[in-house]
Every structure is written in C-alpha cells, then in structure tokens.
C-alpha cells in the first residue's frame, strides 16, 4: 500500500489491529447456526403452552382424533363454560389464593425478623442460631416423621398443615440475613440516637429501605406456595380445602389412571377440560411473569454475590 504521508499508515495500522481481524467464515456460519438453534430452543420451550391453548379452544373430537397442534380445531368456548361452572374449580382457586397469601405472610414475618436479628454480629448466641438454620438445609426429618408430627398436632384437614410447616426457607433466610448485614449501620445508629427502639428501627427504617429484597422474598415464597400440591395431597382430604393444583392433579390422575393406587378421588374428564383447567391455573403466573422475572434473577444473584 502506498501512503501519501509518512505517519498516517502507521497510525491506521496500529488502530486497525483489533478491528481488522474480521470474523472468519467459519465463525460467521457458527453465529448463524447458533442463532437458529436458540430460536429452536425457544420454540420447543413454548410449544407445550401453544398446544395447551389450542386444545383449550378445540372440541374434544378433534383432540381425540389427534388433529390439534398449533391451532384450535372446532373452535368453541363451551369447555371454558364447563370449567367456569365447576364449583370445585372455583373452590380450589379460592383456596389457592387464601393459602398463598396466608402462608407468604407468615413466612415473611418469621423470615424477616429472624434474618434481622441474626444480621447483628454482636448478638450473643448468634452462631448457634445460624447453625440451627444451616443444619435444616442439609438434613430434614423426612416424609414419615413429618407426616406423623402434623397428624399428631391435629393439623390434618386444616389450612395450618399447609401454611405453617414451610414458613422458613433456610435459603431465603440466609439471603435476607446477608442483605441486612450490608445495611448501612450509620442509619440505624442515627435512628437509635433519635430514640427509636429496635422495633422502631426495624419497622420504620430498615424495612422501608429494603423494599427490593422484601419484594424478591415475597415472590420466592408466593410462587412456591402457589405451585405446591404435595402438602395438600398429603394433608387435605376435604375437597372444600384443596387448592387448584390438587384439583388439577386429580383431573390428571382421573384421565391417566395414575391415581388409582393413591386411593384419591379421581375425576374422569376430557383432554379439553384438562387443558382449560391447566391454562387457567398458569394464567396468573404467565401474566405476572414478565414483571417478576427480574426479581427472581436478582434474588439468585443476591445469594451468589457473597461467594
């Protein structure tokens, strides 16, 4: 290359080094393949949902004939009417909401207060209490002793069997504790000088300034309680108390015969009814999901940051 000024080529050459190495042809091919594969991953992830919606709006005949995939066939809304008219579905939905709200409330009270107390490094006996929590992460009583305890406490067929036993998740507690540990102590000291007691500092200073982490924990708990079905399956034989996940499970068991050995009540129904019930159960989560997703990601990060 011929240059007009003696210095110019050098400069451009130095500057150019990082940018002039273009993607090799192989890498360009790879990038395209990579993008295509990721699109495929998304399609596979979404397909069950699409299929579910298609079945929910289809008539039973087309589903049985195996003709419903991406798009409804024999479009109708009668299935929705059937499910909307089913008393058990609404009872289940109401129970799910009540249980989720109550359980999350209890869990948040116990988790935040304990995490706050344990975040104070000067607290005598702190390491013993922390040990008490950590042990529960690696060892738990197991199915049978837990079942006998709940039964013996007389909690069977009460809402307390669902909302009490999972009130403290060790994971959530430790995340909150490490968050409170990093809370600026100047603020608390200033409040203390102004005459606030520990209760006042916690309720009026610390909690209002910890909204993000509190929101994250509420979501962690709420989603896990909303999705739970097994505790209800174990402890709630009264249909008036069962959450919607259990109603759904009974539908599945009735449709597939897998519930026979469990001795639970099963309901014989068509695939379209099942699809509508499933759709209505996941709907709240799907609607809230775009908003809560970032809290979940940040919650997981919060836990790992200390590492």
């Amino acid at each position: 290359m011929v240059s007009t000024t003696p210095t110019a080529p050098d400069i451009s050459a130095v500057r150019a080094v990082p940018t002039t190495i273009k993607d090799t042809r192989g890498y360009t091919v790879f990038r395209v393949v990579n993008a295509v594969l990721l699109v495929l991953v998304c399609l596979v992830t979404l397909y069950p949902f699409v299929n579910l919606i298609a079945q929910a709006f289809s008539s039973q005949g087309y589903i049985v004939a195996g003709e419903v995939n991406l798009w409804p066939k024999g479009f109708n809304l009668t299935t929705f009417e059937t499910v909307f008219g089913d008393e058990r579905f609404w009872t289940g939905y109401r129970n799910t909401i009540i249980q989720t709200v109550l359980a999350t409330g209890i869990a948040m009270v116990l988790t935040t207060t304990m995490a706050y107390a344990l975040s104070k490094r000067h607290l005598k006996g702190r390491s013993v209490f922390i040990g008490l929590v950590v042990v529960t992460m690696f060892f738990n009583g197991g199915l049978i002793p837990n079942y006998l305890l709940i039964t013996n406490l007389g909690l069977k067929n009460t809402i307390w069997a669902i909302v009490l036993p999972n009130a403290i998740s060790a994971f959530n507690l430790l995340v909150m504790k490490s968050f409170f540990e990093n809370f600026p102590s100047d603020l608390e000291e200033a409040a203390s000088i102004d005459g606030l007691t520990t209760y006042g500092i916690f309720g009026r200073i610390v909690l209002p300034l910890s909204k993000a982490v509190v929101a994250t924990m509420v979501l962690f708990y709420a989603v896990s309680f909303w999705n739970a079905w097994f505790p209800a399956f174990l402890y709630l034989s009264d249909p008036g108390l069962q959450p919607v996940t259990l109603y759904l499970r009974n539908l599945l068991a009735g449709a597939t015969g897998s519930g026979v050995e469990a001795g639970m009540e099963t309901v014989q129904i068509g695939a379209n009814i099942q699809a509508v019930a499933m759709l209505l159960t996941v709907l709240p989560i799907i609607c809230f999901y775009p908003f809560i997703q970032k809290y979940f990601v940040s919650g997981v990060m919060l836990g790992s940051v200390k590492g």
């Binding site: 304990m114 005598k124 403290i168 520990t198």
Partner: peptide, 28 residues
C-alpha cells in the same frame, strides 16, 4: 438486646417444632 431476642422467639420455636422434632422423629 432483649428486643432482638424477641424477634427470635417465634422463628426458633418454629424451627424446633417443624424441623427438629421430625429429625428426632426418625428414631421410629
């Protein structure tokens, strides 16, 4: 720190009853 300890009463009672009693229950 008695106020801080009051924060611990319920959670610890919870852990003992719903976590440690079942652990001990494994003796069956």
């Amino acid at each position: 720190d008695w106020r801080l300890y009051t924060f611990l009463v319920l959670p610890i009672a919870f852990l003992l009853l719903f976590r440690y009693v079942p652990m001990a229950g494994n003796v069956i």
